[in-house]
Each structure stands twice: as C-alpha cells, then as structure tokens.
Amino acid sequence: MIELLQYEFIQNAIIIGLALALSAALLSPYLVLNQQAMIADGLAHVSFAGLILGILLSGEPLIVAIPFVMLASLMIKYLSTTKTINGDAAIGLVSAVAFAIGLILVKKGQGFNISIESMLVGNIFTATSVDMILSIVVTILIVTFILIFYRKLFLMTYDQDYAKFSKINVQLLGYLLAGLTAFFIVVGVRTIGTLLISALVIFPSVIASQLTKSFKNTIILGIISSLVIILLGIFIAHPLEIPVGSTIVVLYAILLLGLLVFKPLFRR
C-alpha cells in the first residue's frame, strides 16, 4: 500500500477521493434527512447529458457541464415548489429528458470517440489536474456554505415551517444547496461515474444514522465512514484492476449490511 503512494496518479486519486468524500458526507444529511436524496441520482443523469454536450462543444467538457447541470438543479428545485408537481416527479422528469438528450447527442454527434462505459462508471486513476482542482474547489465551497449556514440548514432539515417562522430564507438556501449539489455531482461523475456518484451522497447519513440519533454526530460519523471507505476503495481497486467507484459502493454496502445485522445483537 505504501509503495503505491509513490505514483502521481495514486496521489491525485487520493486527493480527489478525500475531497469528494468530505463533500458528499457534508451534503448527505441535508439531502437524505430532508428526503431529497434522489436529487443526486437525478443530477447524475443530467450530468451525463451535460458532459456529452461539453465534449462536443468544448475542449474541456466541465466548462459546459457545470452550468448545464446547475441550471437543471435549479429547474428541479423550482418544479418541486409548484403545487402540481412533487419533488420526486420533478427529479424524474428533468433527469429522464436530460439523459435522453445525452443519448441522442452521442448517436448524432460527429467525432464522439469517448467510451460510454467510462462515463457511466468513471475512472479516478485517469483524473486530470482540472478534476483535482475542481474537487478541492467544490469541497471548499460546501464546507464554507455549511459552516456559515449550519443552524439555518439544520432547522430547514427538520422543520421547514419553523424555519420560515424564524424568518430564514428557506427558498434561497434551498437553491444554493441544490446548486452546490449539482457542482459536486458533475465533478464526481468524471471520477466515480454517472451510475454511482449518488451513492456517495446517500450512504454516509444512512450508515451514520444506524449508530447515532444526533445530527452533529451523524455528520461526523458520515465524514469518517466516507473518508475510510473511499481510501479503502482506491487501495483495493487498483491491485485488483476493478473500477474504483464500484468498489467504493460495494464497501459501503458491506458496512451498512454489517451494521444492520449486528446492531440488534448489541441491544440484547
């Protein structure tokens, strides 16, 4: 394991992995506990279309994909606030349309020579310096956002009516959270994959909630589990020559299954 650290691509993978782990774990409780976890999955499908569009229009796909997905996240947020469309339906509508557009662009796009499989499962070992910089940037933005608005976000998560009564701008914070989630998803899709990135957002809070009922401890335990699992995923996947994203999700699932099985035994 120590010998692997001498390789630059492993070093880059660790930096990106830890940045994404921290970002996902911080976003997790605000999305999962507020029953908005599927927005991550929806935005992952949207990011597929955004990256395809970016590849066809620009030398750096993220330049196009980031604003594209952020606009989609704001549209989902807006549609979910209407009385005629609920949140899950809004996510389903926008993500399905965007994914369909992405598939059409792949079929009709001239000179498209990137493997669709690589976009679906990602590859953190081939990440570029741009990916690393963006991973760090999105982490800084998310950490700063949560530190500044921690109490307000906490109230929004557990009681939106009381948050509104307390004169918290729930709508603005909701849009900001959706935008940051979109930014995280786009950056993560390149390394973890379209099909798997949402798992990074969902698992930390689900795992932490098996061990604690405290909101603060949920965040802390989510961060710890996320950092450990992603590091293990990187060091297990490389020697076995298997996808890192898939390895991380399987490790998360094993940990969660273990907690579900053994937690009742400790109560006896």
Rank of each mutant, 00 (worst) to 15 (best):
residue 217 N to K: 14
residue 188 G to H: 02
residue 209 S to I: 03
residue 204 P to A: 10
residue 192 I to F: 05
residue 180 L to K: 01
residue 203 F to Y: 15
residue 220 I to E: 01
residue 202 I to A: 15
residue 220 I to M: 03
residue 212 T to V: 13
residue 186 V to M: 04
residue 213 K to N: 15
residue 198 S to D: 13
residue 218 T to L: 12
residue 217 N to F: 12
residue 184 F to N: 09
residue 215 F to W: 10
residue 181 T to H: 00
residue 212 T to Q: 04
residue 171 Q to A: 08
residue 186 V to D: 03
residue 215 F to C: 04
residue 213 K to M: 09
residue 220 I to N: 03
residue 199 A to P: 02
residue 186 V to E: 07
residue 224 I to M: 15
residue 184 F to D: 03
residue 189 V to E: 01
residue 203 F to T: 08
residue 175 Y to W: 04
residue 205 S to A: 15
residue 178 A to G: 13
residue 171 Q to P: 00
residue 215 F to H: 14
residue 217 N to Q: 13
residue 212 T to E: 05
residue 187 V to H: 02
residue 178 A to E: 01
residue 174 G to K: 00
residue 222 G to D: 08
residue 211 L to Q: 05
residue 221 L to E: 00
residue 219 I to R: 02
residue 183 F to G: 02
residue 179 G to M: 15
residue 178 A to M: 01
residue 214 S to I: 11
residue 221 L to I: 14
residue 210 Q to K: 13
residue 215 F to A: 11
residue 184 F to Y: 13
residue 201 V to S: 07
residue 220 I to V: 13
residue 183 F to T: 05
residue 199 A to E: 11
residue 213 K to Q: 14
residue 176 L to V: 10
residue 224 I to F: 13
residue 220 I to F: 15
residue 219 I to P: 06
residue 223 I to E: 12
residue 192 I to G: 08
residue 182 A to W: 02
residue 173 L to H: 01
residue 202 I to N: 01
residue 200 L to R: 06
residue 221 L to S: 06
residue 180 L to Q: 04
residue 210 Q to M: 12
residue 200 L to I: 09
residue 206 V to N: 05
residue 216 K to R: 14
residue 218 T to V: 06
residue 223 I to T: 07
residue 181 T to V: 11
residue 223 I to P: 03
residue 201 V to R: 03
residue 217 N to Y: 12
residue 179 G to P: 02
residue 197 I to G: 08
residue 182 A to E: 09
residue 179 G to E: 03
residue 181 T to I: 14
residue 185 I to K: 06
residue 192 I to R: 00
residue 183 F to Y: 10
residue 202 I to W: 11
residue 204 P to R: 00
residue 196 L to M: 10
residue 209 S to Y: 11
residue 200 L to E: 05
residue 182 A to R: 04
residue 177 L to T: 12
residue 196 L to D: 11
residue 207 I to R: 02
residue 195 L to W: 12
residue 196 L to T: 09
residue 204 P to D: 08
residue 196 L to S: 04
residue 180 L to I: 07
residue 173 L to W: 05
residue 183 F to A: 12
residue 209 S to C: 03
residue 197 I to D: 10
residue 185 I to L: 08
residue 182 A to C: 14
residue 212 T to F: 08
residue 179 G to F: 09
residue 173 L to G: 08
residue 188 G to M: 07
residue 199 A to R: 01
residue 174 G to D: 03
residue 225 S to L: 12
residue 198 S to F: 15
residue 175 Y to D: 13
residue 172 L to M: 13
residue 188 G to P: 11
residue 206 V to L: 09
residue 185 I to V: 15
residue 190 R to Q: 15
residue 215 F to P: 11
residue 205 S to E: 07
residue 215 F to N: 10
residue 198 S to C: 09
residue 179 G to Q: 02
residue 188 G to A: 13
residue 191 T to E: 07
residue 181 T to D: 06
residue 198 S to T: 01
residue 195 L to N: 11
residue 179 G to H: 00
residue 206 V to R: 04
residue 208 A to N: 07
residue 186 V to F: 00
residue 221 L to P: 01
residue 215 F to L: 14
residue 181 T to G: 14
residue 194 T to C: 11
residue 206 V to M: 05
residue 193 G to P: 10
residue 201 V to T: 11
residue 216 K to H: 12
residue 200 L to N: 07
residue 177 L to Y: 02
residue 177 L to V: 06
residue 194 T to S: 12
residue 223 I to F: 12
residue 213 K to D: 14
